[in-house]
Design a binder for these strands. Structure first.
Lengths: 205, 205
DNA sequence: ATAATATGAGTGAGCGCTCACTCAGAAGGA
DNA sequence: TCCTTCTGAGTGAGCGCTCACTCATATTAT
């Protein structure tokens, strides 16, 4: 039977991680001191180091938390009915989820870009996971004849890129000079772009 | 006539900036000390502060340098002949230039993501500049009837996103598990994707 | 000689992390 | 039940260190 003590311990750890992630996302890893984290978590500074050997371990745990939270809500496969509808809905739900997690995703990306040691692990966890999923979906639908054959890895990269960029732009564009459309308008246009391309043609109607 | 001293001064400033940018790109802003910069530039630590009041000023100047260097090589408008060819060539030259500047672009992006103060200024300088250029090109070609009407801002965002993502992936994917194709293959596929879309059709041949 | 500039040891602030100590609560004997 | 002993997580002042930045002095150009 788990003692009362152990429950409290897990809860304390969770609170420290929560406080750290919150501060990292708002102010960045380097601008956040362990003293600040302790104050925000309502514990003594030393307690942090009972749960996480170093500040870097806290960073790694925080980054893992972001990835886990994002992928908890599963990316469901495109329904078979209409490819355009399916693409649009996938874009919409993913963009909305991303925008909800935007601050934390920015923190994760910033760390990935500036922290050489974290790249390998999280590149695998985030980018490969996203694109592998897309690659499987694309291959399946090409086999079914719904999409033309193509270099699926390049196309998957472009899809992830278009998606990530909207998150970044949403974060950077505080004056809303670029993100003037709504999420559903954007999803609409992206779905049409990737399905029909930019060439004028009969697909337009 | 400019004195020898003044030439030396400008040259010194340039060397300090060069050394700082090099170290920032390799190790990140926070992991680079002013002592390191001084040693790399071959000057005393105090000299840095004669040219740049604070370390942050050095960061701002370094970031500006990256933007200037990237945009020095002008983005020429698409030639009129073949839209597919033009798109492909634009992607190819931009990707190659980006890959040459990759480490510095990563540094710039990392700072943009983690440094709240720099966002406003550099968002304008980088993202708006790139997309505004694309928006103008797209509108022009739509008016000429070469492309279907569309939400040009969304499409421009997707193009910039696909482009940026390949740079990021190139930087993160050390084991080359995603970037298995050559730059020209990638440009080829992207041009076809954005022009014809993914739907099977007569455009395929 | 004078002004302009370069120098680098020095400064204090702030950092991650430690460790001697505290004390609530579990364990156990009577 | 009550008292004693044991345990280990929690605590926070403080350590050692690094940092950006300063300033008295040296060097150099005119």
């Amino acid at each position: 039977m788990p003692s009362v003590r152990r429950v409290d311990q897990a809860e304390r750890r969770r609170r420290i991680l929560e406080a750290a992630l919150d501060l990292f996302a708002r102010n960045g890893f380097h601008r956040t001191s362990t003293r600040q984290i302790a104050r925000a978590a309502g514990v003594a500074e030393g307690t942090i180091f009972n749960h996480f050997p170093t500040k870097k371990d806290l960073l790694v745990a925080a980054a893992a938390q972001v990835v886990d939270d994002y992928f908890r809500e599963e990316i469901e496969p495109l329904p078979r009915e209409s490819t355009l509808e399916a693409l649009r809905e996938t874009f919409r739900t993913r963009l909305e989820l991303g925008l909800r997690h935007a601050e934390r995703i920015r923190f994760l990306l910033a760390e990935l870009l500036s922290n050489q040691e974290m790249r390998q692990a999280y590149f695998e966890a985030v980018v490969l996971r996203l694109t592998d999923h897309l690659v499987r979906l694309l291959e399946q639908r090409i086999a079914q004849g719904f999409l033309r054959p193509c270099n699926v890895r390049v196309v998957a990269g472009a899809l992830v890129g278009a998606f990530l960029t909207f998150l970044l732009v949403a974060l950077l564009d505080e004056k809303r000079r670029l993100l003037t459309s709504s999420v559903s308008e954007i999803s609409d246009e992206l779905a049409r772009l990737f399905l029909y391309g930019l060439e004028p043609g009969p697909a337009e109607g």
